[in-house]
Amino acid sequence: MAVDKAFEEVLEFVWSLREAGSNSIKALLEIDEVKEAEADSSTLEAMQRDGLLTLDNDSITLTNKGEKLAEAAIRRHRLAERLLTEVLAMDTDSVEKNACSFEHTLSPEVTDRICALLGHPPTCPHGLPVPRGECCKKSKDAVKPIVEPLTELGVGDSGRIIFILSGSHARLDKLSALGIVPGSVLHVHQKRPAFVLQLGETSLAFDADIVKEIYVKKMS
């Protein structure tokens, strides 16, 4: 179902405005991004005609149909933010810019895949809730994300490294010299007082700071 990009943008802001505790049309139209999407009161009226929302004086309410679309758009947006921040390690400014254009091209299927890749994150990088998708509701899947920080594994678990997110060159160099690179399998021996990991026949001790930057896929 193709929805006008401006409509989608408006729906998202109605949603986030509501999270902030407001349903004012005036406040909505004041938002910069809404202005940028060239949405004005006529857009809102067009959306009302399409049955996405209802307008009453200054207050705005989503219809069931609008609610669903808004939820999906918010979900895409916030997952995109997480993907760009955590996996692609982009800085805050470019995350916002890219997340906005990225979200409109994501199919539901890709969205669910990203959600699983990120381990069904409950919140976006700003701490706002990511609406749950079908994928998160499948009970088994919800507690077993595909990729998670190694710190999330239990003692005795093994994980295959998918990526290492570190801003420190020295750290990456050192890890790779020890053979810790994507594809390697690490076994968690202990988590406290420091991490003890097994790689092949080598036991290595690490700080939790380093271990939380190593993202793995748990092996059964």
Partner: peptide, 10 residues
């Protein structure tokens, strides 16, 4: 300070 990375021999 540097990272704690240390090999633990058997």
């Amino acid at each position: 300070a540097s990272d704690f990375m240390l090999e633990i021999p058997p």
